[in-house]
Amino acid sequence: MKKPYPVPTPDSRPFWNGLAEQKILLKHCRDCDCVFHYPRVTCPNCLSSDLDWKQASGQGTLYTYTISRRPTHPLFADEVPQFMAVVELEEGPRITSTLLNVPEDKIQIGMALTPVFEHNEKEKITLLRFQPADTALRGAAPSAAEDKPASASQLTPEVLAYIGRVSDKVSGYPVSAEEIRRFCYATDDHNPRYLSGEDIVAPPMFVSIPFDWEVPMDSLPEDGTPQQNDGLVFPPLKAKRKLFGGYQVEYFQEIRPGDVLTRQRKFLDIYERSGASGSSVFMLIEATYTNQRGEKVAVDINTIINR
């Protein structure tokens, strides 16, 4: 789901076009002289539809606000802490907005505000935000990273030191026609090249199968996530869940029954991304596969997400 932006309607379009030209347009009732926001086809005071538009001065005061320490929706995680404001325009109507360029301790209900027209070229829309009218009260709001305890980086020097570490070189189970067949049946792949004839080859995704190692039950973690036997130790992270994020591979040789593959793995990269539910650490593990003739068979990269 993408972050929501306003979609103007036939009735509201002048308001949004106005913002693009740095003007705040309010609906005005020619019958009762009421000025209102948001735009409607009838006046909320007298229900007349004899309406026109009036340009507001743009000046307003802070009616109320809150600083949301948690995203109000996962799609707004990038804006935390969110300075959620209700602004009362000089002409009377109130408007939902957010505050910019103000340190937390300078925010006061009733403070004078001035508009900031924030144009988003990609979305073709201008949002109306506000900042203190008094330039002495302006200043940078603390960034999300400083404010959120959860966003303290998991990438300690100790964790970063794992980048570049390599595993032992280990040999996998010998490739057999039976194991290839089991793999094909499990992936619902009926390609005859893998299943019958003189020259059976393994399907490409088979390459890591001979390295999926059995370990005794008492060596398994509680969630059952599989372990490997090549001595590659994972960095210590707060995150407990490991999710499979993706895979890329390049092939150089076919794999055939009778082949014995050797593999060596390496931490290619470790990086962090922040999202709604806290930060995730991405680990990229590269593996190089060679066969018994010393020929390079494949190189793959697994992305593992620690969340």
């Binding site: 929501p4 932006y5 306003p6 979609v7 103007p8 309607t9 509201s12 926001h37 948001y38 109320t64 606000y65 809150t66 949301s68 948690r70 995203p71 109000t72 929706h73 707004f76 804006e79 969110q82 959620m84 209700v86 408007i95 939902t96 907005s97 957010t98 829309i125 949002l127 935000r129």
Partner: peptide
């Protein structure tokens, strides 16, 4: 959809905190 959600003004916590 037009006037509140794009500013992140949704869900309940924010409104009660403003009150």
């Amino acid at each position: 959809a037009q006037f509140d959600i794009p500013y992140g003004n949704l869900a309940q916590n924010c409104g009660y905190a403003q009150i």
